[in-house]
């Protein structure tokens, strides 16, 4: 079966993020970039399916700047077969979903696996939008995925408020990966060597003929307010008094 997996280039979650003084975005100097961790889980899941289902193909897709090649190469080194990079600047979630829908028309995958969200803007929107645009069933926040023996349907366990929910639906479909779906492998050294020779196709977004005019624009970014220093009180009486009169919580 053919599986399409998204790979977004995002700042390393360990990096400390600074907002630009003019509020137009974040400072990108000296930031380490990685594969969105939820997408990495998606790549791992696709590779596990490929290992079970003979003749499967795992195709990676990224949308963004040319440097996103690095993240695609990482996915190829993990074991994906080929990659597509759509060159585009700052699309909003609907724009991303439309680009992906167009690629799905061309590639005709049996399954799309995406991270449930990218850890940069945490929109958590593209998977759902893409399923809607394609008219495909969706299983979001997957913590377990099981395919039927004939790979015609999927059973997805989702982490929802208050417990686990299991959905079954026919394929093709869209699945978004949650944290506990799996633990991604390291790219092996021979895998890294082979990645260089695998196909990585670049497509300018204009060539796709998709309307990517943003519906959402970012007007301003600001860091969360810094926490103020605490206060040390001398007695329980004083504490109760302050909680009542100052904090007004009791």
């Amino acid at each position: 079966m053919k599986i399409l997996v998204t790979v977004k280039r995002v700042p390393d979650p360990e990096t400390s993020i600074k907002v630009k003084p003019d509020g137009t975005g974040i400072v990108t100097d000296n930031i380490k970039w990685v594969v969105n961790p939820f997408d990495e889980i998606g790549v791992e899941e696709a590779l596990r399916i490929k290992e079970k289902v003979a003749g499967s193909e795992v195709v990676l897709v990224s949308i963004g700047d040319k440097v996103a090649q690095e993240q695609l190469r990482t996915g190829l080194a993990m074991g994906a077969d080929r990659a597509i990079l759509v060159l585009a600047d700052d699309l909003d979630p609907l724009g991303v979903a439309r680009v992906l829908a167009k690629l799905v028309d061309d590639e005709k995958p049996d399954l799309i696996i995406m991270g449930k969200q990218a850890i940069d803007d945490d929109s958590n929107a593209v998977g759902q939008m893409l399923a809607e645009l394609l008219g495909w069933p969706q299983g979001t926040f997957a913590s377990q995925i099981e395919l039927s023996d004939d790979q015609k349907s999927a059973s997805v366990t989702r982490e929802v408020d208050g417990g686990l929910e299991t959905l079954s639906f026919p394929l093709p479909g869209v699945i978004t990966a949650d944290l506990r779906l799996n633990e991604p492998r390291y790219a092996s050294l021979p895998g890294i060597m082979k990645a260089r020779k695998k196909e990585l196709k670049e497509i300018p977004v204009a060539d796709l003929g998709v309307d990517v005019t943003p519906r959402v624009t970012i007007t301003k970014m600001e860091p969360p307010p810094s926490r103020e220093a605490g206060k040390i009180v001398a007695s329980v009486e004083e504490l109760v008094n302050l909680l009542h009169t100052e904090a007004k919580v009791i």
């Binding site: 690095e70 390291y186 260089r196």
Partner: peptide, 15 residues
């Protein structure tokens, strides 16, 4: 090389 950097990053993550 680009390959070296990938090896370094993977190895650093492991370490």
């Amino acid at each position: 090389t680009e390959q070296h950097v990938m090896i370094r990053d993977a190895m650093r993550k492991f370490v």
